[in-house]
């Protein structure tokens, strides 16, 4: 009689066939762990490697000097940089100092988000954001150009090109002596780029709203030549 079935009492036998549902029922009242992703996004870790950003100096000049160290550091060959000379005489001053990055492209289908490029960057021009929603329909759309990568204008910034702060040299920018765009720079931009005249307020956002380059309407990948920025 070794296989005699053990009885667990009247109620235990009665509810045995449905006991499993008790687990299901009880789990309704447990805490939910699901992240309701598209509606509620949990923040990433602060140093999460997301989309890149090309930073600006406090007066709006670009930090990128077109040195191509990021492109050299990239293990996947995802970055293409082409430098050019700043030219005050021709109103082409994009960064303090001698050179600026004229063409800057990152192929996000090659990029492995390792961060070697931002480690290589000598001016902290290239950093990474926490943005990660990059899926797209076309391969070409995932090559981000300089216009898409440039940081939005903050308060006190003016869109490049414009002259450096009067009396300052390149070194002063890196020593933090430049706090924001001066009235002379504002005047210069108002004279040389009348299409963004409305955006001359101290807050940066109106500048973005009227700047066609910031909206990506002007500069597309094949014709980076002759683009204002």
């Amino acid at each position: 009689m070794a296989d005699k079935k053990k009885s667990g009492g009247f109620f235990s036998d009665l509810f045995a066939p449905v006991a499993g549902f008790g687990v299901t029922f009880a789990s309704q009242f447990k805490k939910q762990y699901t992240e309701e992703y598209p509606e509620e996004k949990r923040p990433t870790a602060p140093r999460f490697h997301g989309r890149h950003q090309l930073n600006r100096h406090p007066d709006g000049l670009e930090k990128c000097v077109g040195c191509e160290l990021c492109a050299w550091a990239c293990p996947a060959d995802a970055i293409f940089v082409e430098g050019a000379n700043n030219d005050d005489a021709a109103d082409q001053r994009f960064s303090p100092g001698e050179r600026y990055g004229r063409v800057y492209q990152i192929n996000y289908l090659r990029c492995i988000f390792c961060g070697l490029c931002i480690e290589a960057c000598p001016t902290r021009a290239l950093t990474m954001t926490n943005f990660y929603e990059l899926a797209d329909y076309r391969r070409e759309d995932l090559i981000f150009t300089k216009e898409q990568l440039l940081a939005p204008l903050q308060e006190g910034m003016l869109p490049a090109p414009h002259p450096m702060v009067a009396g300052m040299e390149e070194r002063d920018y890196y020593q933090g002596k430049v706090a924001k765009a001066t009235p002379e720079q504002e005047q210069w931009v108002r004279e040389h780029a009348p299409d963004i005249e409305d955006g001359m307020t101290p807050s940066g956002d109106p500048v973005l709203a009227t700047d066609p380059v910031a909206h990506g309407q002007q500069a597309t990948r094949p014709s980076t030549e002759g683009v204002r920025r």
Binding site: K41, Y108, L109, I112, C114, E133, L134, A135, Y137
Partner: peptide
């Protein structure tokens, strides 16, 4: 649909 990342986090795939 192309999805960048190495590897993409699960939220990126959901996206």
């Amino acid at each position: 649909v192309y999805l960048p990342g190495c590897p993409p986090r699960p939220q990126m795939l959901l996206n």
